[in-house]
Design a protein around this nucleic acid. Structure first.
Lengths: 238, 238
DNA sequence: GAGTGGTCTAGACCACATT
DNA sequence: ATGTGGTCTAGACCACTCA
């Protein structure tokens, strides 16, 4: 729909299909502007998206160098749902909804977020299986002021699809925290933990476009199957 | 030096000092343009930096909402050195250089990066102490084609300061991978591991502006002291 | 010197939220 | 209807790289 977004997608695809191979230079901004019949600033917006997602590296005076996506493959970071992760890779996965009920918010969360102690939340507990093994235990709390209820089959397929498309919620940003914690009885009960004593826990606070908190999640991962990949750029002196 | 960067730093500071308190709106882009005597596009570049670093949330038709930095404090992610992390928080820390020598590249790295097997590297091993305890074991390999040698006191204080300022190297981006691995004899020997069986390992491939690989690092963290915080934005349909 | 990306401008029109 | 941010333009000048 937006010009710069279309150009981004087009260039991205051409890079992925090796039409612009790794190590080569993209056409200059001026050339691209002529090729797509847009202004240079519009090209620059598209290139910025490519830069941020790790497809190119720019050099003043030289040009835009295409990076090696083979090498930098699967950078999986940011605010991405389990479903989207699986779609990106071809992995056979399965979600089992253990719990989907309304309750009052746990006290430690009410305190942490300065929310009334009688706040109602939807409490979801889900198991994530990959190749038949239970790898992840997800515990979600959704504020009931914002979502009244979630159909269990939506929780099974993709919660974010449902919230964004059916409920028209605009998920905007999140604070994520990665820590390692000793296992609980619940972990031991639901996951195939062998002799593990710890799990990796990813705690996320998710906010809407209007800055309202609407979700808190603890995603508990089996140690030996946890992997998080990130593409990072150096920010020179903010 | 750049106008938009100066404006970013100014607005950032005013937000941190609660001149623009959390939940309030910044002046409109048109107003800001007049206040700083610049064009609106320049203001928009500054606001984009604020948006990306989690200081504001924009809403079309409404304005730029200041976010609660108390709540979203210490988002520590991206490509940041140990020194910079410590500077951001007031923690007493110490670095001990265990090794600083030239050797041929380990075979698994030569294969992984398609580098000649006789490539020379600088091999650094460093311990990171926080409050007197050894928390992190850092193993660095720097390609000798790019840096000939590193003074041990530079490795002790800040490697990145030295590389960027003394050596004029432009560090641009990295691929980072977070996994959990069983401990090695080396881990056991140097860190106070108690009964831990695993460590968190952050593996980083660091690249220069001209896209040359120049550093590979394994940062091995004690489980109970590992914490990684990230501010993430939802990317709607790339 | 020619070509590249980086910054900045002044203006236009659109989409959205509020009154 | 007004004001907000989102997109796009055409042009200017600067900083940098490379032949």
């Amino acid at each position: 729909m937006n010009k710069f977004h279309e150009i981004f997608r087009d260039l991205k695809q051409r890079i992925e299909q090796r039409e612009y191979p790794a190590g080569s230079l993209l056409p200059s901004e001026l050339n691209l502007a002529q090729m797509y019949s847009v202004s240079r600033e519009t090209i620059r917006k598209a290139l910025r998206l490519l830069l941020e997602s790790g497809y190119i590296q720019k050099q003043q005076g030289k040009g835009s160098i295409v990076l090696d996506i083979q090498r930098l493959q699967f950078p999986v970071s940011g605010l991405t749902s389990f479903k989207e992760l699986q779609d990106g890779q071809q992995i056979n996965s399965e979600t089992i909804v253990l719990q989907n009920k309304v309750e009052t918010i746990p006290r430690y969360l009410a305190e942490r977020f300065h929310i009334p102690e009688d706040q109602q939340v939807i409490s979801l507990v889900r198991l994530r299986k990959i190749s038949g093994e239970v790898i992840i235990l997800d515990k979600d709390y959704l504020l009931r002021d914002i979502v009244e209820s979630v159909p269990t089959d939506a929780a099974e397929i993709s919660l974010y699809d449902y919230l964004e498309q059916e409920r028209q919620l605009n998920i905007a940003y999140a604070k994520k925290e990665f820590v390692v914690e000793p296992i609980t009885e619940e972990d031991k009960h639901y996951m195939n933990l062998k002799n593990d004593t710890h799990v990796v826990v990813v705690k996320s606070e998710v906010y809407l476009e209007d800055t309202r908190l609407f979700q808190y999640t603890e995603s508990r991962h089996r140690l030996d199957r946890f992997k998080f990949v990130e593409f990072a750029r150096r920010k020179h002196s903010l």
